[in-house]
Design a protein around this nucleic acid. Structure first.
Length: 645
RNA sequence: GCUUCCAUAGCUCAGUAGGUAGAGUGCUACCUUGGUAAGGUAGAGGUCACGGGUUCAAUUCCCGUUGGAAGCUCCA
């Protein structure tokens, strides 16, 4: 332990090897709450951080592995933005301006939204402030003085008032601009080298749609111009793999205003991918003892009043269709139907688990601003199943579901594990309206899921307020090309619906017992999975899923017959093959097939016809020489068969 | 749903400081029968998203609707 003496005379014990960052955090976390003025006289040194007078932690670094350094860098940049806006628009009120995963933003309350010209001017002004190389100084004030200092900034006043009693109220000052801020920062504005304003948009004050909408400006900054260039290239690459762009180019899906927003139509290519995927996942499920059903997309409102959807999920449902003496709705989920399927007959404890699956169309009235290609739609096809299990089977069955997820995503598709994160989605205890009210049920279910994740040694994070209304979930989250955080597979534990539908099984003791339901989706929805597949593969689908697996390119008209003969032979073996018999040169046809990401091109000219051969060009390896028709057939069938489609 | 921006040929986009439009690509025909990423010529294609308003005149300006984009809110 090292003893540090603070200016106010109090001492702080710090572990050997602590970084200055850790010291500063201890001070600000209240270990030395009264020590608003600190001075280190211990022997701690960390070249990346420095503790100045007044607990002003100064950060000198900007490195991939140094999150604190990046945050401080971007946070300082956001202060520069606020200063620039205040210089150009003195009436603007400043709200908050944090660093984010990539860059930073600042929210302003202004009379008119920023135009492109405004943003260009702001960027210029920011560059000026950087040039001025203003020193960044920290100071703290008692609440009263803090409120006085910020009297013209209503949002800051609100923030100060919300700070708990006893919390240090610190400010950072650069030139004539001062902002309420906990820090840390870099030492002066000159440390920021390049900045770029990326976009602006509206954002609700404090994230609530009940509050006023402020104007948010997003930007990013780096210590080197080349890093900015790299970052912008990365953004451009992300745009290139956007599933909406590739989906259009490769004729996977389309939309039409006459059909409506959030209602994509699958073109033949997309329909093929979807059909193969849906067969694949159902076959997997059948191997694992699932039984599939078909249930209607419509139901009587009473069904959802029984399930609790009406109470908790009504806002997300399409409105009621009122008929003469009944009220129908489009279903947003399939659970209620499946509950009734289970209830259709009496079950013994020996029959459990019972696994009821369905590729089911669900309808959700998503906000018009949030629909997005195949990623977020208003009609989706869920790869849904409900497992009816005994309480003693929960752990094993949830484990099996997680295993199936690993098998599909890692083994069969080979997606990198870095693409996913596991989220334990819990309820928000303070929001009684959103969730079924039964504290004991929630606590049991949440801790069971947590325990399973720990036992399987899966890295996960917890998120409050993300549960389904009926129970907690294990969600597998991915980041899309647009940096949206979305769920694909999910596994949910539900003690509520069995109760509401009064489900039971007959136990060993001859008495009725309550089963537990596990809701799970592996592909999530076909739609969302395909959007993910497109972005992850950049449109170069694995062979077994390709709408066209083989394209035959005859060199002249004289090989059309031969090409069609091969096509017919392959088609009988369920190889998806087309002949490009247009009057075009071979180079042209190859270029086009390559851009279409066709896995195999078979080039056939007089030589191949004579010797009963095909010249093969692969998507990845280019020209790979000739083979007999039979040899190639065997090769491709082997490659396809690895996924048993 | 909210804030901002956008909508011109099948696709990608230019253009008109208000006088009804153009390129590339694709499509069709003809010439060319070509061996591993673009052969040539010609032609067809648009009530400039839809509905109002201002104007002698609107694709262009204004309002509304629909659809799209970014973000916010919400969510598989």
């Amino acid at each position: 332990m090292i003893k540090i003496t603070l200016k106010d005379g109090s001492n702080l014990d710090i572990e050997q090897g602590s970084t200055i960052l850790q010291v500063a955090k201890k001070i600000s976390e209240g270990l030395a709450r009264n020590a608003t003025c600190g001075e280190v006289n211990g022997e701690i040194k960390d070249l990346r951080y420095e503790l100045h007078e007044n607990c002003n932690l100064v950060i000198h670094t900007f490195q991939e592995d140094d999150l604190e350094g990046k945050k401080a860098y971007w946070h300082t940049s956001s202060h520069i933005m606020a200063q620039a806006v205040k210089r150009l628009f003195p009436n603007a009120k400043i709200a908050i301006g944090p660093s984010i995963d990539e860059g930073f933003y600042y929210d302003f309350d202004v009379e008119k939204p920023f135009t492109d010209e405004d943003k260009a001017k702001i960027e210029e002004e920011m560059k000026k402030i950087i040039k001025e190389n203003l020193e960044i100084k920290r100071f703290s004030l008692p609440r009263k003085d803090a409120l006085k200092l910020m009297e013209n900034e209503p949002y800051k006043i609100e923030l100060i008032k919300d700070l708990p009693e006893g919390e240090e109220i610190s400010f950072y000052e650069q030139g004539n601009f001062t902002d309420l801020c906990a820090g840390p920062h870099v030492e002066s504005t000159g440390k920021i080298k390049t900045i770029k304003i990326l976009s602006s948009s509206g954002a609700y004050w404090r994230g609530s749609e009940k509050n006023k909408m402020l104007q948010r400006i997003y930007a990013i900054s780096f210590p080197k111009a080349s890093m900015l260039e790299d970052y912008l290239n990365l953004l451009e690459e992300a745009k290139q793999r956007d599933h909406r762009k590739i989906g259009k180019e490769q004729e996977i899906f389309m939309t039409h205003p006459l059909v409506g927003s959030g209602l994509p139509m699958y073109l033949p290519n997309g329909a093929t991918i979807r059909r193969i995927l849906e067969r694949y996942i159902q076959d997997k499920e059948i191997e694992l003892g699932y039984e599939h059903v078909y249930t209607p997309s419509l139901a009587n409102v009473e069904l959802y009043k029984t399930s609790g959807h009406w109470e908790h999920y009504k806002e997300d449902m399409f409105p009621v269709m009122k008929m003469e003496n009944e009220e129908m709705v489009l279903r947003p989920m399939n659970c209620p139907h499946h509950m009734l399927v289970y209830k259709n007959k009496l079950h013994s404890y020996r029959d459990l688990p019972i696994k009821i699956g369905e590729l089911a169309n669900d309808f959700r009235y998503e906000a018009s601003g949030s629909v997005c290609g195949l990623e977020r739609v208003r009609q989706m096809c869920q790869n849904d199943a409900h497992l009816f299990v005994r309480p003693d089977q929960i752990k094993e069955e949830v484990g099996k579901v997680l295993n199936l997820i690993f098998e599909v995503y890692q083994k069969d598709f080979g997606f990198p594990s870095s693409a996913f994160s596991f989220r334990l989605s819990l309820r928000d205890k303070n929001n009684k309206e959103k969730y079924i009210d039964n504290d004991k049920m929630w606590e049991t279910a949440e801790s069971q899921l947590r325990e399973i994740l720990k036992q399987l040694k899966i890295d996960f994070y917890e998120a409050e307020g993300e549960a389904a209304f009926y129970g907690p979930k294990i969600d597998i989250q991915i980041k899309t090309a647009l940096n949206h955080d979305i769920t694909i597979p999910t596994c949910q534990l539900d003690f509520a619906l069995p109760e509401r539908f009064d489900l039971s099984f007959i136990g060993e003791d001859g008495k009725e017992h309550r089963p537990v339901v596990i809701h799970r989706a592996i592909l999530g929805s076909s739609d969302r999975f395909i959007s993910f597949l497109i972005e992850e593969t950049k449109g170069a689908f694995p062979l077994w899923l390709c709408p066209t697996q083989v394209k035959i390119l005859p060199i002249t008209d004289n090989q059309h017959e031969y090409a069609n003969k091969i096509k017919n032979q392959f088609t009988k073996k369920r190889i998806r093959v087309v002949v490009d018999d247009r009057n075009e040169k071979t180079g042209y046809k190859i270029r086009e097939a390559q851009l279409e990401k066709i896995p195999y091109m078979l080039i056939v000219g007089p030589k191949e016809v004579d010797e009963n051969l095909v010249s093969i060009r692969s998507r990845e390896d280019g020209d790979i020489g000739t083979m007999s028709i039979e040899q190639f057939e065997e090769k491709i069938l082997n490659e396809i068969d690895t996924k048993k489609n």
